[in-house]
Amino acid sequence: MQSIREIQLAPYNIEWEKEFTQEADTLTNVISAQILEVHHIGSTAVPGLSAKPIIDLLIVVKDIKKVDTYNQKMEQLGYETKGENGIKDRRYFQKGGNERTHHVHIYEKGHPEINRHIWFRDYLRARPDAAKEYETLKRELAHRYRFEPEKYVENKTNFIHKIDQLALKWRKG
């Protein structure tokens, strides 16, 4: 029987940046021939923001199709291969089973999701008021949907789209 994932937010932890750096170094060694950039994204990349303690890495590669040749190496590192997992031309990996520790999102250079993730993160870093609003929403949803991770994610969607739009305007100056 598979255990149910519980949504638990943790206060911001400065160690998350070190965990990102360590994992980025490990993954760079595995996928070095393809990697162009590695970014820390998601809530653990925003200082001061409470988050599920899962490190999200965004990796930009030269050729997304060649990433599939690394699936076995990723599995040896403890990652579960999820393919596109709902986003065209992405490769997604997760580590830790129901006690997730890392999510890896891999895109080919030029994919629109790259800038969306980075701009979302940067906007929250630059706008503590927006980060606080996001944290308040996440806390409310984590309480309401503690054992329903899909509903937790689904109910953040409108806010995320709002921040995406604000971040796009902000980036354009």
Score class of each variant (00 low, 15 high):
residue 33 A to I: 08
residue 147 F to E: 13
residue 107 Y to G: 04
residue 110 G to N: 12
residue 99 E to Y: 10
residue 21 T to S: 12
residue 130 A to G: 05
residue 100 R to E: 07
residue 14 I to S: 13
residue 118 I to G: 00
residue 58 L to M: 15
residue 97 G to F: 12
residue 57 L to R: 02
residue 21 T to H: 07
residue 10 A to T: 14
residue 45 A to M: 05
residue 105 H to E: 10
residue 38 V to L: 09
residue 115 N to A: 14
residue 81 T to Y: 07
residue 45 A to D: 03
residue 172 K to G: 00
residue 106 I to Y: 00
residue 149 P to M: 10
residue 107 Y to F: 15
residue 72 Q to T: 13
residue 89 D to C: 03
residue 26 T to Y: 00
residue 68 D to Y: 06
residue 161 H to T: 11
residue 70 Y to D: 05
residue 44 T to P: 01
residue 37 E to P: 00
residue 117 H to A: 05
residue 79 Y to D: 01
residue 44 T to I: 04
residue 50 S to A: 15
residue 44 T to E: 01
residue 102 H to L: 09
residue 64 I to W: 04
residue 154 E to V: 06
residue 95 K to E: 07
residue 121 R to V: 07
residue 147 F to G: 06
residue 131 A to H: 02
residue 32 S to F: 11
residue 80 E to R: 14
residue 66 K to I: 12
residue 109 K to S: 10
residue 7 I to L: 07
residue 77 L to M: 13
residue 66 K to P: 04
residue 21 T to W: 03
residue 159 F to P: 02
residue 143 H to M: 12
residue 83 G to K: 08
residue 65 K to Y: 12
residue 43 S to H: 02
residue 131 A to D: 05
residue 151 K to W: 05
residue 170 W to Q: 08
residue 90 R to G: 01
residue 36 L to P: 00
residue 134 Y to M: 13
residue 60 V to I: 15
residue 80 E to K: 14
residue 67 V to G: 04
residue 70 Y to Q: 06
residue 64 I to P: 02
residue 85 N to G: 00
residue 47 P to H: 08
residue 7 I to D: 02
residue 129 D to I: 11
residue 113 E to N: 10
residue 76 Q to D: 15
residue 122 D to V: 05
residue 27 L to C: 03
residue 160 I to M: 08
residue 39 H to I: 04
residue 105 H to W: 06
residue 93 F to M: 07
residue 29 N to T: 08
residue 139 R to T: 13
residue 110 G to D: 11
residue 29 N to S: 11
residue 127 R to H: 15
residue 2 Q to V: 14
residue 33 A to R: 09
residue 29 N to K: 13
residue 3 S to I: 14
residue 7 I to E: 01
residue 57 L to Y: 04
residue 103 H to G: 04
residue 156 K to W: 04
residue 106 I to R: 00
residue 87 I to E: 03
residue 64 I to F: 08
residue 44 T to Y: 00
residue 107 Y to M: 11
residue 168 L to R: 05
residue 72 Q to F: 10
residue 165 Q to N: 09
residue 46 V to K: 00
